[in-house]
Simulated scan of single mutants.
Amino acid sequence: MSSFAALHHRPGAPLLLPNAWDHGSAAALAGQGFPAIGTTSLGVAAAAGLPDGVAATREETLRLARRLARGRFLLSVDVEGGFSDDPAEVAALAVELAEFGVAGINLEDGRSDGTLAPVALHTAKIAAVKAAAPGLFLNARTDPYWLGLDRPEAEAWHRLAAYQQAGADGVFVPGLADPAAIGALVQRLAVPLNVLHSPAGPALADLAALGVARVSLGSLLYRAALAAAVDVATAVRAGRPVTAEVPGYEEVQALHRDGV
């Protein structure tokens, strides 16, 4: 078992995975002692002026992964749906990421038009990735809750059962926040469950008690950074004092000078 996979098998101590969108955000998080960091597809896309979830950021994702994989932390990369519906192309992407030193990927079945990829297609992608890059931790994401589908629990289980059978190392169900449903799903699964942190949902300690293995922050940090930047700018414009604590110039320089 890889060191990254091992972080998903610590009963009562789920992996809290913060998600970065550039070198600076990853370096700052690493400096706070997080052993593993993910990328956020929304943050990567938005920083490049591109939409998320439409397979437009393959090159930006690879460029960032190449840089971050040299850091002193384990890296998981959000690859949307693999930027292709050809399982062989998705597998080739996974191999390239593994060669960089990436520890894991997140592969989703949700599509930008509000539908889900066919189960057979997503399982083919999973199987192709695991055959080509067996050491890469594959977190298979399914989006019935995220997309607000009717009876999401039934659709999610149908897909998760197929994805773990195809070789997924873990599964991710964003939008799932009901404690009873989370606990029941943990009991049914044979692989670790990843959920998305929700400010309105269960706290980290409660998720740990339910058996959740990984809690992702998704795009939350990127969106919080945008909000903080706007707050500072509008405070200065309005003549209000800037009360936010911000790192100094040299502190930020050191993040890049010293690497991650």
Rank of each mutant, 00 (worst) to 15 (best):
V102H: 08
G110Q: 10
A131V: 11
D113G: 08
R111E: 07
A127V: 08
H122N: 09
A98M: 06
I126A: 09
I126M: 07
K130N: 07
V119D: 04
N106K: 14
T123H: 02
K130V: 15
H122M: 15
A98G: 14
A133E: 09
V102Y: 09
A117F: 02
A132K: 12
I105P: 00
A103E: 11
A133C: 09
V102E: 04
A133K: 14
P118W: 02
G114A: 06
V129D: 03
I126L: 14
A133N: 11
A133W: 12
I105Q: 07
L107S: 10
V102I: 11
A131M: 05
A132C: 07
L97R: 13
E108R: 13
A98K: 14
A128P: 01
D113T: 05
L107G: 07
I105T: 13
P118R: 02
K130D: 04
L97H: 10
A98Y: 07
R111G: 01
A117V: 05
L116R: 02
G101C: 09
R111A: 06
I126V: 15
G104S: 13
A133P: 04
A117S: 14
A131L: 07
S112N: 05
V119I: 15
A127Q: 09
T123E: 02
S112V: 15
L107D: 03
A128R: 14
A120F: 05
L121N: 01
L116T: 01
L121I: 01
G101F: 13
I126F: 08
G104E: 12
A124T: 08
D109N: 11
A103Q: 12
T115H: 11
S112P: 00
V102N: 05
A132I: 13
K125C: 10
A132P: 00
A117K: 15
F100P: 00
A98V: 10
A133L: 10
A132D: 02
A117I: 04
L121D: 03
L121E: 03
A120G: 02
A98N: 11
L107W: 06
D109M: 07
E108G: 07
G104V: 15
A117T: 06
T123R: 06
R111L: 15
A124S: 11
K130G: 06
V129E: 03
K125Y: 05
A98H: 10
H122W: 04
A124D: 03
A117W: 01
E99L: 13
L97M: 12
T115R: 15
S112Q: 06
V102G: 04
I126H: 11
L121A: 05
H122P: 00
S112Y: 05
F100W: 08
A127M: 05
E99Q: 14
L107M: 11
A127I: 10
A131P: 00
K125I: 13
L121K: 02
G104F: 12
L116V: 01
T123L: 03
A124V: 04
A117P: 00
T115K: 14
V119G: 01
